[in-house]
Design a binder for these strands. Sequence first.
DNA 1: TTTACTGCAAAAGGTTTGCATGGGT
DNA 2: ACCCATGCAAACCTTTTGCAGTAAA
Lengths: 147, 147
Amino acid sequence: MKSELEIFREYIRQRGLRRTPEREEILQQIFETHEHFDVDGLYLRLKQKGAKVSKASIYRALRLFLDCGLIREVDFSDGHWHYEYIYGHGPHCHLRCLSCGQIVEFEEPGLPLLQERLARQYGYRIADLQLEVKGYCSPCQAEQQDD
Amino acid sequence: MKSELEIFREYIRQRGLRRTPEREEILQQIFETHEHFDVDGLYLRLKQKGAKVSKASIYRALRLFLDCGLIREVDFSDGHWHYEYIYGHGPHCHLRCLSCGQIVEFEEPGLPLLQERLARQYGYRIADLQLEVKGYCSPCQAEQQDD
DNA sequence: TTTACTGCAAAAGGTTTGCATGGGT
DNA sequence: ACCCATGCAAACCTTTTGCAGTAAA
């Protein structure tokens, strides 16, 4: 299996774009941690590492990573975008606590079949399927009862 | 079954809030069309009808409707919130064309069971479960091949 | 009479863009 | 040498908020 960097470099070459240290540093930071991230967090981690990248470049780079399928947008409905690294990972869903922000990842084995069924039934070519669940975790439920 | 207006008036009374023509006009506009909507569209339709409501009041009213369970937020990942009227309707999911914006609604009967399973398995009290699918409809797929 | 609600305009917060400079190819 | 990419700051867009006036209760 090709590495993330190889995938990206190929993509860059095919489009006649340019290979820059900024883009590759952003990409590396993303696949080093393998977690959900948002632009602010990514920017801070890069700064702490001493990398010199602007937020504008991060936004511009993310669009490329999305386009070549290395990451995807995840919607946590909290006012800004979240992303997750997906290359080489099975699709998964999120169960998120609205009170403390905890995120549980789970897999739902039936989703690929559902995706096929939808594609067939409605003639769609499906690009993304998101199952996102919001609620309150046990500790936060207990706290709420104290009020 | 109580009407939407009754539900809302009860909610208002219980909280010691005030019953205003603006709020009820917004609510009526929402359940008159029974479709997905966003703030801009709702504002335009109200204006065309001759109603005098500001966007600020719409935003403030929507929070109340969300809170009393008449509507819910739907995420189309396109930069602003969408809403849908849910009182008296079964939960449903959306299949949306990224090219022309067409929206197909479908039901996924397994979701309530999945919701129970997640609640039990992780100790969560679940507030909302969204299954959103993005892709390209047949006509738009055909168009893309022409390029 | 009290105090919640409205409209307006300003603020806020995240993302995009114009522009001059810098750096791949 | 060409022109894409970067950083900065300004612009942009949606949503929220402060405030003074208005209107439910």
